[in-house]
Design a protein around this nucleic acid. Sequence first.
DNA 1: AAAAAAT
Length: 802
Amino acid sequence: MPQSKKPAVGRAAKNFDPNRSGGARGGAPKTGSKSPSHRGFRADEGAPKKQRWNADERATRSASRPAGDRPAYGNERPASGARTERPAYNDRAPRNDRPAYNNDRPSYGDRPARGERPAYNNDRGDRAPRTDRPAYNNDRPSYGDRAPRTDRPAYNNDRPARGERPAYNNDRGDRAPRTDRPAYNNDRPSYGDRPARTERPAYNNDRGDRAPRTDRPAYNNDRPSYGDRPARGERPAYNNDRGDRAPRTDRPAYNNDRPSYGDRPARTERPAYNNDRGDRAPRTDRPAYNSDRPARTERPSYGDRPARTERPAYNNDRGDRAPRTDRPAYNSDRPARTERPSYGDRPARTDRPSYGSDRGDRAPRREFNNDRPGMSSSSNSKFYPSRDDKPRFTAEEDVVLERLEAQATTASDVVGVSFADLGLGGNIVRELGLLGAASPFPIQAATIPDVLAGRDVLGRGRTGSGKTIAFGAPLVEKLMENEGSKNRQQGRKPRALILAPTRELALQIDRTVQPIARSVGLFTTQVYGGVPQYRQVSALQRGVDIIIGTPGRIEDLIDQGKLDLSQVSITVLDEADHMCDLGFLEPVQRILNQTKKGGQKLLFSATLDKGVATLVKQFLTNPSVHEVAGEDQASSTIDHKVLVVEHRDKSAIIEQLSNRDGKTLIFSRTRAYAEQLADQLENAGIKATSLHGDLNQARRTRNLALLTSGRVNVLVATDVAARGIHVDDIDLVIQADAPDEYKTYLHRAGRTGRAGKTGTVVTLIPKQRQRRMDELLGRAEIDASYASAVPDDASVRALANL
DNA sequence: AAAAAAT
């Protein structure tokens, strides 16, 4: 049943994939899904989860689950009955009796199965039976049974509390009691180390109980997904890698990458894989495919490896920066960069001769800073982006830019205004209250009425100004008005779509929008990559009203015919300017083209600028543009510092800056460096973790939760964490690598100083980067203080003591 | 360079 994939709507050639084009989806997908180095790798995820909460929640819970509870875990299982019999595991003999079953297994673990997932579909198809077990259905569809939740506002209250988790900290503080239960403490750390998991033979035992399973096919589906876990057990290699951190420091980035690939060998062991191949009947139709495979086997090194081996050069460059200075040739490269004035938004520069003069006046840089205030006041710009634009655009573009001249709303405008005044219904207002939003923020007061009026809206509000509710609440209200909740049939098509640039952000948006939607009986679902499709697809089949996700998986599901956006009448682009960047724009355009013609479009970002002109022209009609007055950086609660450092001192300084009490977020330009820094800090005894695209989604989610929960105080991330992510109480942002774009700077900086709290942003740069940094800060309209620093400096220590 | 699908 290599189902023929539906032709990708207008994007067949986007990514060539011989395996998909022919239809035997099942064959190919297997290959990569198990590779830990691959984004889709999920050996780690308790995919089948019964959890009704989102993945984030799940990760938090499992991670916080003390190993000491493990027995408890076992207890949970017993709930499923068969598992209690775990000893049965040794009875694999029975298994051999059912070899066919085994074949299924592996294949299941391999996504291919999913691709085919006819089984899954069948199960669903079996809904008739399900109706027999309504309870089950209720669980699923209600996803989280939020309905009940509304009944338990207390629960929601808890949530916010969690963010602060004072309770949690107290527990820790109470270690005295803990010592009473030493086992608990010991387990904890071990838990962090996956190795503990390997101890979980319990899982395998469950499998041994397959006899019962066959009786309950639906149950099996769940199981299989757990099938990945066993894989974990096998993954000692992964753990070892971690343990080998000492060696890593020697070859930091390189090692990190490798380990993940190291698992590939494991694959070869997977006979299951071969079985899938057994499905070659279909394949024979596509000889090309077979030719591909062989090729792979030849590439034990798997293409990338060779490349890597060659890439030591990259590392050398970095590490050898001292030598670099010795190599003017390198510098000659740099000049090329300086040529990049056109880079991104820079074009504006050409328009601002004054800017250029500032550059020339480098010595007087201090003047530059002094000028800054003057600049902003002279331009009297409410916001950086629009300011530069006008001059350099053609007449046609000018129209768009004019539209970007926003109506400014001030905080005083909204005093005494309530959400109800803005036109939101009672349930929604009540839910907003539970979420901690008692009265609207300016950006919300500005945009909600226009959204409710059905207009296209561009909204610009500083980082952390409440944009999610600004679009989320009226969106839900609109859906209610349009259709009420009468349209509740299974398989109904989604009517609203919220697009975000990262999975974490999509998750976070869902955490806000879902309760609002549920308060009026609407359903949301997340559609993003890195996690199994199954839950997402089955949610869609049950019918949801609001899709929240990232472009890749959304397009994927569209291509598979599992997602239909034709009824989407409201589309939101969060971080809209970023969604217009290279790499995002085209997918976003394709997705928007799938939505209902004439549908409402809402574009939000803290740095909404003319970069969205393309989309505005293509998809929006007479949009209203809103921003909040007085939201310039001068009114911010963030203190900006630039440390000019020698490259060789960089890591030591970062380490000293990170060695502090508050939450610290460190940005690096590359994934490898993020990983390296996290390792370095850990080796130095500073609890740190990382967040970047080389991690599988489960770890990404977990690592972010580690910071949110306060179990670690330092997170080293790539720009995946630059936008939108909200973590309470980050009071120091360190930019280990300076950003290239002023917008990136603003977003990274926006991770701190939230909700009116104070925060500090420290940017480390080499001497030769000062000019670029000046320029960037100028565009961001940020006043920063410069200082040279070496390790153990008083200035460094002062920052660490913040 | 990173991100976003999966392979």
